[in-house]
Design a binder for these strands. Structure first.
Lengths: 227, 227
DNA sequence: GCACAAGAGGAGCGCGTGCTCCGTGTAAGG
DNA sequence: CCTTACACGGAGCACGCGCTCCTCTTGTGC
């Protein structure tokens, strides 16, 4: 049942050069378009920009999702790597943390598809790019251990990144530097001089199957349904 | 040119009671559905849930946008008011600020359509609900003047709200209390004990028409296009 | 009770979008 | 140069969604 591999090397021709070039063109164009418009973009737009027909595009990527995943894996990796690099170039642990956020939020936070998926990934952690980013943050966390407010977790820093990433996207058009203020404020709130314990995360490691949607801390369960 | 009013009161019949009831049913159902699924929801779903036909729905609201606007104005107002009330019930200015954020993020931040529009409103401030919320924040700002970090603006607090609102939405399913930690961190970063000046907002009041999209502070303009 | 305008309902149209089908083109192998 | 298998392109299909049209129903004024 597992004998369906590429068979002998002689049995299958080498891929044609134009096919390879087209595939690269598709990925490149898709990356740009996904960055600009998010995953809701029309597939025809990607085909047009990469200069290939629909048939060619769907030959290389049978589903739109396949193309999106391929592009996102690459871009997400590049993103995490650029942020990591900015951190290791810094002089001290706190500067590393700051540089990490600045780099992460400066370049790729404008990549709409990345931020979309980054938000999604919170409930469906299937994207391995997240693990990559997680490891970077873990190292930063360990490095700045004494400088960080007690109780701060990797998830806190990750959520802060998603949160600020969203702020970047919505303010970028008219207030391109505004997110920087929020970053400063948040980073200062993360300093060790703040001793008050943070409220407990209800599910620090596991996913609670309990009836969480029934009882709310306050306010209506669905705001307008009960008025 | 303005003589197209309802004319004389005798000229037009009073609206039928079933029409009024249906309109209310539509708004109520739409509010619940928009809260759950956002503005991308199918109009048929709203019609089905309110127990009316498509014709009836479109008789009351000629465009989907009209219905969405009507519902959003109502829900947004209720949201702002509930958050305001939580603030005035507090004992001191800082507690008021905290209570405001807690209330704002607890109930309505799960209203998908509200948060969608709240993000959009940053670039297109046509929603008067925003002004309502702005005024609440202005009063909180004035009340907590001495306790707030110097240089913090109403826009900062507003952006923080949007930002945390997004965090609530993406973590609500699996980590229903996690946003609270981020709120604490951010609020502590807002305290007056932090003296470092915040980076300037490039366009504090006006919209800069300059070529902002061409030159980026760092990183590629569109991350993957130049690799 | 009657006449009728206002209202209700839902099948269906137009359009956008993911995806396919098939005739044509063209790089590899001899 | 010829063959052939792989690749290319884009017209077209299926489906979902916003919105309309037309027929039947029902509340209202007399």
């Amino acid at each position: 049942m597992a004998a369906q591999e590429p068979e002998d090397t002689a049995r299958r021709r080498a891929p044609r050069v134009d096919a390879i070039r087209n595939r690269e063109a598709i990925v490149e164009a898709a990356s740009a378009v996904l960055a600009e418009q998010g995953t809701a973009v029309d597939v025809r737009e990607i085909a047009r920009r990469s200069g290939v027909g629909m048939g060619t595009l769907y030959r290389h990527f049978p589903k739109k999702e396949d193309l999106v995943h391929t592009v996102l894996r690459k871009d997400f990796s590049e993103w995490a790597e650029s942020a990591r690099q900015a951190a290791v170039d810094a002089e001290d642990p706190w500067a590393a943390l700051t540089a990490f956020y600045e780099q992460a939020l400066t370049g790729y936070a404008r990549h709409r598809a990345i931020m979309e998926n980054f938000s999604l990934t919170w409930t469906v952690p299937d994207l391995e790019g997240l693990q990559q980013l997680r490891r970077v943050i873990e190292r930063l966390c360990a490095g700045a251990a004494g400088l960080l407010r007690p109780g701060v977790t990797v998830d806190d820093l990750l959520l802060l990144l998603v949160s600020l990433g969203h702020a970047v996207q919505i303010t970028d058009d008219c207030r391109p530097q505004m997110w920087n203020r929020l970053l400063r404020i948040s980073l200062d709130g993360l300093r060790a001089e703040h001793h008050e314990p943070l409220p407990a995360d209800t599910a620090p490691g596991t996913r609670p199957p309990g009836p969480d949607r029934e009882v709310r801390p306050s306010g209506p369960s669905h705001p307008a349904a009960g008025s």
